[in-house]
């Protein structure tokens, strides 16, 4: 036995130590990989918070279009609706949002004419017709797809009370009972923050 190749036995001893060290290293690598994966997961999830403050027909579109699109990217999306922006989530009022003809330099009429009774309604009708012809989604459709795709549409509680709305006035799935602090918290965690 003593005549066994000494080189081999030294190698064997070495590889035994190596095996133990290797096992420890493997475990450490696995541990690090797992924690890296956890960190990566956190980074992958993009988040956007939009604060919607406007309730005119034209201004209802941008937050909803951006929200539903970001959700299609797999982002976590919150839209915090406050002041007139709350009307977008109000089931009845959202059907009747108006475009203002006055003070809108893009309107093909002077302000003096635009201020006449019925002009806002007319401008809104014209815009609605264009939207329909262009195949642009309605506000209700955009709210539906946003909610379907997991967008958190939030109704500012203070504004609900200020406008004397009821929590049942809003579309099913709208989050109520939230305030500015909730919005700030989401904004702080977001990659993108927008005020519309």
């Amino acid at each position: 036995m003593s005549t066994d190749n000494p080189t081999t036995s030294v190698d064997d001893a070495d590889s035994e130590v190596d095996a133990a060290e290797l096992q420890a290293l493997r475990e450490r690598v696995e541990e690090l990989e797992a924690s890296m994966a956890a960190v990566d997961d956190g980074d992958d999830q993009q988040k956007m918070t939009i604060v919607a403050t406007q309730g005119s027909f034209d201004m209802a579109y941008p937050p909803l279009i951006l929200a539903s699109t970001a959700a299609a990217f797999g982002w976590e999306v919150i839209v915090f609706h406050t002041f007139w922006g709350l009307d977008i989530l109000h089931e009845e009022k959202s059907q009747d949002l108006k475009l203002s003809a006055v003070g809108n330099p893009n309107m093909p009429m002077p302000n003096a004419l635009a201020a006449l009774p019925g002009m806002d309604a007319m401008a809104t009708k014209m815009m609605q017709k264009k939207i329909d012809e262009n195949g642009t989604a309605t506000i209700e459709e955009l709210i539906d797809v946003s909610l379907e795709s997991g967008v958190d549409l939030q109704a500012c509680q203070m504004t609900i009370e200020l406008m004397e709305y009821d929590e049942d006035d809003f579309y099913d799935g709208v989050t109520t009972g939230v305030g500015a602090a909730t919005a700030i918290q989401h904004m702080a965690e977001s990659d993108v923050q927008l005020l519309v």
């Binding site: 699109t69 195949g135 797809v145 795709s149």
Partner: peptide
């Protein structure tokens, strides 16, 4: 067909 932004994207995702 006939639908405009953002619907083609939203529906593609769905």
């Amino acid at each position: 067909k006939g639908q405009s932004c953002p619907m083609p994207i939203v529906k593609t995702k769905q």
